[in-house]
Design a protein around this nucleic acid. Structure first.
Lengths: 124, 124
DNA sequence: TCTAAAAGTAGTAATCATTACTACTTTTTA
DNA sequence: TAAAAAGTAGTAATGATTACTACTTTTAGA
């Protein structure tokens, strides 16, 4: 089990206080405002352990960076291939089970990315 | 528009002929049986252009490799955190739209990964 | 409280999947 | 055909992420 550390607490707080999907480097830049000499390796290690323990999710959209999400509730990520935005959209949680055949698989977390064009980019 | 090349055709054939989700290195190993001196860079370049053109999908499950999928139909990837298996499961396509609020977003492709335990690993 | 073991950290070096580059080959178009 | 455009093999470079080490913090038991 993981011990307490103010670094991990600060990283988790940062992810809970924002609604976007920052990369490790972006989390590092923000947490440095609170713990100036925190190291980038510490950010990576804690993000990995938080994903491992299921406290946060990691999201990949194919831009070469891993993104992190403090919102564990089931939702889709709409990734605009034009502007790169990652937009959250809720799903009616209880209904998803009716249309998916899990066949004995025990789901814990999920990360769904839908690629396409956002409203703004579609108009341009 | 992309020109024809036997390398890209072989890569696309390979992805269409298998039901798993190979990495670039695994595609390289297979396609080498057909085109022995194909280069790994060519595999990467063509996989990227096939993803770009929407002919295949890339799937990330957090194991450090990008995986590729020749099946573009909407389905979920069940990723077992124990054995690492990636299991496909169908979704009743037309029903998904009723439970997701796309709010003007135009979806093109989607890659959904559900993390958890597969039937076998659950029993052990 | 102490105190030693366990876990975590900062800072730096190393890794390695992926991308970029270059000289050459294949495909396309007219 | 022939020249332009696109693609390739082979190799070098990139850079996000991971590993390593000496030091610090946390934890649990006396």
């Amino acid at each position: 089990m993981a011990n307490y550390s103010k670094q991990r607490e600060a990283i988790l707080n940062e992810l809970h206080s924002r609604c976007d999907h920052p990369t490790a480097a972006q989390v590092y830049e923000s947490v440095r405002q609170v713990i100036p000499n925190i190291s980038l390796g510490t950010v990576y290690r804690n993000l990995a352990s938080l994903v491992e323990s299921g406290e946060i999710l990691s999201v990949t959209v194919g831009d070469g960076y891993e993104h992190y999400d403090g919102d564990k509730s089931f939702h889709l990520h709409l990734h605009c291939k034009c502007c790169g935005a990652i937009i959250d959209t809720k799903v009616q949680d209880e209904k998803i089970k009716n249309i998916v055949d899990f066949d004995g698989f025990t789901p814990e977390n999920s990360v769904c990315v839908v690629y396409g064009l956002c409203k703004n980019c579609k108009l341009q």
